[in-house]
């Protein structure tokens, strides 16, 4: 799957789970500091991303995914 498609799918999840505005999402945005996604919502985002992209995101990997770009790259290389 192309990175653009992964990013688009991730945006849908962030809108659904955390109420993020789609236009606010860029690759360099931090989930916590820029998009105000808290730790509880990050767990939901991860579970939905796992289902959507057929990827496993263990908790210790999730902790390293600080930005949208981190998540897109992780999914692209592990899906």
């Amino acid at each position: 799957m192309a990175n653009e498609d992964i990013q688009k799918g991730l945006v849908d999840i962030l809108v659904e789970v955390a109420g993020v505005e789609a236009d606010d999402v860029d690759l360099d945005k931090s989930f916590v500091d820029d998009l105000d996604v808290d730790s509880l919502s990050m767990v939901e985002v991860a579970v939905q991303a796992e289902d959507k992209f057929g990827v496993k995101i263990p908790d210790d990997e999730l902790a390293n995914l600080k930005t949208v770009g981190d998540a897109v790259n992780y999914i692209a290389s592990n899906a």
Partner: peptide
């Protein structure tokens, strides 16, 4: 477990 919401307790 995966489907249990992290918001369950609050």
């Amino acid at each position: 477990l995966r489907k249990v919401s992290p918001l369950t307790v609050p």
